[in-house]
Design a protein around this nucleic acid. Structure first.
Length: 919
RNA sequence: GCUUUGGUGGUGGAAUUGGUAGACACGAGGGACUUAAAAUCCCUUGGGCAGCAAUGCCUGUACGGGUUCAAGUCCCGUCCGAAGCACCA
């Protein structure tokens, strides 16, 4: 019998499913290992071969860890709330739940064909009320919590209330919106409504007025990570800034912990760096400038990281959106300022970004006083200062900041250099180096000394204080959409209240249309009886990241209706040991999840501070597109090699019409009616297509469906091939050409067991050479899998099978089957049973590596260096044979000393040099 | 502009972390078996030179320097690519 992958794969997939082979239960007698994939959003297009790349990698690791004796948690689920299903619903009237369920079942079919070892009994779906009950639960917990900066953790809000009752704000160091100060009696005198307003300033989930990314086309607000270059990530629509009252999460309170926690994680440096940049910590100084405008004076606080340059300040700048603008504008300038502010408001985010080089601004008519020099300096207004960062006001040092420099040049403001010898005639000198001058007490200091010295001075003289600033903003948590988690919030007399826990889940109401109302309210406003005890419920829903922030916890205990996760399950599984997914979540999901987990940790619901210990970013599989070249104005297509002699248009052609870059011209004519009478100019009788590596997408006609690969080559071949393509972290194009190699390898493997229909495995003793091949492979596989270097493991396999092509001995083949099983589980199961085992291979153990088998016979060589024979050493016997000219040996067995130093290794290149590594 | 990360045959990629560069695979070329095809197997395959031949020699990891007995790997400079951030004071 030949290797019939179709039958084998069907048989074993059915067996695994029927017997729940991969069901996982907590087992304290075994060490745990938690391997997680980023769960997919089930889109209508189904999976293409790029999606399973990470899943295959994690599945191999899971199976490997099981062989190593670990109790492995390896679950899968769906991130099933989201925009595409809703957009589709708006267009067709089809309920998003219906399309979501359809898409999920298609995903499941596709996933099942690849042979993953998921414990499907633990599946979660974020749109399932039994699941989002816990998303809503966490939101309520956040609503009922505040962040105590002095303890560095979240605490129940009731605790804050009692502190306010006792002593007001004194002694309270809380993360909050605006700074507040009041006494206990002031607090106690407040109305309920006023108290609620105050508490909203401290809650971790809070309702607040803020400038948001508003996307008119989508009719919703978006988080910062959902916007790239002023366009929405989904759909690519323009985004504008708008002030709105929105639910937010006080992620900024966790900035320092999110930053510090990175050090302990086993993530790539680049990913950690991305998060660090996103958090954007900077240490600087807040300095108070007195500002005069007509008769009025006001203290204006600015933030700077370079107080040392304060003697070079020649003007100040306010952000156009800053509240100070209105207060400080002098009457004679009011008209110009108002015009400027409305001009800035009209611009979209996109325009502001693309016009960063055009300098704009207007004079406010106010003057500030430099607190160190007493100089009187003009106050300007310009969009290059952001309202949301620092205080929305800056001191400008044109000599040493390129943005201030550009502004000074444009509006002809003075530029005063304060670092010796720098030339500021053409550009500013931004570097933090050199000696200070024109700077009073700082003169002669190096910039590096001057920064702390200036900070000290400012603090000692009461002019300001050191201040840490973060770029990380609070997460905007409201979306004006239907297909998301409803907020468990109602409004009683206009005050936001959360539902009692026993009312959860608050399920999505049925509505007849999914688009926003005519008055621009979210779709939920269409729902009838959308109220709680007569009070209206919140009509916006939660964003996509809500459901994905704690899903890894739910997998630990997915059917628990009393708790998010029981403490037994949580203390057993703890956190994710290995998380595999794309980098695109670096500043979104991976920040929110860490925040969410830390919050739950503070309240004692989970036992680990960080959710994901090790993180591997799989690269993208790109498409390999093919092109044909149409001669302009004709229906004639010219082969790629000849295209330069014609004027041509490049046209994407469906890769299914192309094999090895050769176009099937008959299929091409049938592909589209307009090509029915196409003519071709061939080279060597063939039409050669051009190609390019692009994103895999329908519009490029380069999508490869894993189902098709499973049909023609089998799931095991697909798995092997995706891993053989190259390192997991790297992006690489899918190229179907190479798949024959691994397919051939599996057939060769099969032929170790079968000659036609004859099972040819014998009980003969293995030879030393055979054992050597086997153990080399065991060693290599172990080492490589731990390092996620699966492609080289597969190479090692191919070499071993080549070496063992004539070996049909059980003693060798049985371990080989176990070694292959993480990569190609179906064929391994089949052969494992053919070898006479009743259990599945996954309950076997990983073969033990014996180094002795791989070490050759040795004989003694004299080793000399520096012209003298120093000692003798045992080296492999074939040392002097051609082809083995060099060996690196561990010297442990022969531990020799030269001149009192221990020899660690010896490197021999016959006829050339001997290198001794000593310690 | 800043941060991160790369640059090795026709292609995907190896290289024990400083030790024979190009493993393994694809593609290409040649051959065997076959009426033929598929399948399978064998040989060649970075470039150049010499030889009937086994083989030998030179050169070669983006470019230019350097450290070292030894550099794809480490250091300095230049060029190019990818990703992320982007008026963050």
């Amino acid at each position: 019998m030949d290797y019939n992958f179709r039958e084998i794969e069907k048989k074993w997939q059915a067996y695994w499913a029927d017997n729940h082979v991969y069901r996982t239960v907590e087992d304290p007698s075994k060490p745990k290992y938690y391997v997680l994939d980023m769960f997919p959003y089930p889109s209508g297009a189904g999976l293409h071969v790029g999606h399973p790349l990470g899943y295959i990698a994690s599945d191999i690791y899971s199976r490997y860890k099981r062989l190593k004796g670990f109790n492995v948690l390896h679950p899968m689920g769906y991130d099933s709330f989201g925009l595409p299903a809703e957009q589709y619903a708006i267009q067709t009237g089809q309920h998003p739940e219906k399309t979501t369920v359809q898409n999920i079942s298609r995903y499941r079919q596709q996933l099942d064909r690849i042979g993953f070892s998921y414990d499907w009994d633990r599946e979660v779906r974020t749109c399932d009320p039994d699941y989002y009950k816990w998303t809503q639960w966490a939101f309520i917990k956040m609503f009922k919590s505040w962040y105590d900066n002095s303890l560095g953790k979240a605490r129940p809000i009731a605790e804050l209330v009692s502190r306010f009752e006792e002593s007001g704000t004194s002694g309270v160091d809380a993360a909050c919106g605006e700074k507040m100060e009041f006494t206990a009696s002031q607090w106690n005198a407040m109305s309920e409504e006023e108290k609620e307003k105050v508490l909203m300033n401290y809650r971790i989930a809070y309702l607040g007025e803020t400038s948001v990314n508003w996307c008119p086309q989508l009719g919703t607000v978006l988080a910062n990570d959902e916007v790239k270059e002023g366009l929405s990530v989904r759909g690519g629509y323009p985004v504008e800034q708008k002030k709105m009252s929105q639910w937010q999460l006080r992620v900024s309170a966790y900035a320092e912990r999110l930053l510090g926690g990175l050090d302990s994680l086993d993530w790539t440096d680049s990913l950690k760096e991305m998060q660090r940049n996103w958090i954007g910590k900077s240490l600087g100084t807040e300095v108070v400038f007195k500002v005069e405008s007509g008769e009025k004076t006001k203290d204006v606080t600015i933030f700077t990281t370079r107080v040392d340059t304060i003697f070079g300040v020649t003007f100040m700048v306010l952000a156009p959106e800053s509240d100070l603008v209105d207060e400080l504008t002098a009457p004679e300038c009011r008209k110009a300022v108002e015009e400027y502010v409305s001009y800035v408001k009209k611009k979209t985010e996109r325009e502001r970004i693309s016009e960063t080089k055009t300098v704009t601004g207007v004079f406010s008519g106010a003057y500030g006083i430099n607190p160190l020099t007493g100089d009187r300096i003009p106050v300007w207004i310009s969009e290059y200062v952001l309202a949301g960062y620092g205080t929305g006001a800056i001191m400008a040092v044109p000599a040493h900041d390129s943005r201030d420099y550009a502004f000074a040049k444009k509006f002809d403001l003075p530029i005063v250099p304060i670092i010796e010898g720098c030339d500021v005639s053409e550009q500013s000198f931004d570097a933090k180096e050199g000696k200070m001058c024109n700077s009073g007490f700082l003169n002669g200091m190096d910039v590096k000394e001057a920064i702390p010295a200036a900070m000290d001075y400012v603090e000692e003289h009461g002019l300001g204080h050191r201040k840490v600033n973060y770029r990380l903003r609070d997460a905007i948590f409201s979306r004006q959409r239907y297909w998301g988690e409803p907020f468990p919030v109602y409004y009683k007399n206009g005050i936001a209240q959360v539902l009692p826990m026993d009312r959860l889940p608050l399920t999505l109401p049925e509505i007849d249309e999914f688009k926003p109302t005519e008055t621009g309210e979210p779709p939920l406003a269409r729902a009838k009886n959308w109220s709680y005890e007569g009070h209206p419920l919140e009509t916006s829903t939660m964003p996509g990241f809500a459901g994905s922030s704690a899903y890894y916890l739910r997998y630990m205990d997915p059917h628990n209706s009393e708790e998010l996760v029981s403490s037994e399950a949580n203390t057993y599984w703890r956190n994710v040991d290995l998380y595999i997914g794309g980098t695109e979540h670096a500043t979104g999901h991976l920040i929110y999840s860490r925040f969410w987990n830390k919050f739950l940790y503070d309240l004692g619901y989970v036992c680990e501070d960080e959710p994901f210990r090790k993180l591997v970013n799989q690269g993208m599989i790109q498409g390999r597109s093919n092109f044909v070249y149409r001669v302009v104005g004709t229906n004639t297509f010219v082969s790629c090699g000849l295209k330069d002699s014609y004027q041509t248009t490049e046209i994407h052609v469906d890769i299914n019409l192309v094999h090895n870059d050769r176009l099937d011209t008959e299929l091409f004519r049938k592909w589209r009616p307009e090509y029915a009478d196409a003519e071709f100019i061939l080279e060597n009788g063939e039409y050669v297509c051009g190609w390019a590596v692009e994103k895999m997408s329908k519009s490029m006609f380069n999508v490869v469906n894993p189902d098709d690969i499973c049909d023609t080559y089998g799931a095991d071949t697909l798995r092997l091939y995706e891993m053989f393509l190259g390192p997991i972290e790297q992006s690489k194009p899918w190229d179907t050409k190479g798949i024959d190699g691994v397919s051939r390898f599996l057939r060769k493997f099969w032929r170790l067991f079968y000659d036609g229909d004859r099972f040819i495995v014998t009980d003969e003793k293995a030879t030393p050479d055979e054992l050597k091949s086997l153990h080399k492979l065991i060693g290599k596989e172990q080492e490589d899998i731990e390092a996620f270097s699966y492609n080289t493991t597969i190479s090692a396999f191919m070499i071993a099978v080549g070496e063992l092509a004539d070996c049909h001995k059980r003693e060798i083949l049985e371990p080989m089957v176990i070694l292959l099983s993480p990569f190609a589980p179906h064929i391994a199961e089949e052969l494992w049973h053919d070898l006479g085992h009743d259990t599945t291979v996954n309950y076997a153990t990983f073969p033990e590596y014996v180094e002795a088998y791989t070490v050759e016979n040795t004989c003694t060589y004299a080793v000399s260096f520096n012209g003298k024979t120093r000692f003798t050493v045992d080296l492999p016997k074939d040392m002097d044979k051609a082809g083995v000219e060099q060996k690196v040996l561990s010297m442990d067995q022969t531990a020799k000393y030269v001149d009192g130093k221990q020899i660690v290794k010896v490197i021999v290149v016959p006829g050339k040099i001997v290198n001794i590594v000593i310690r």
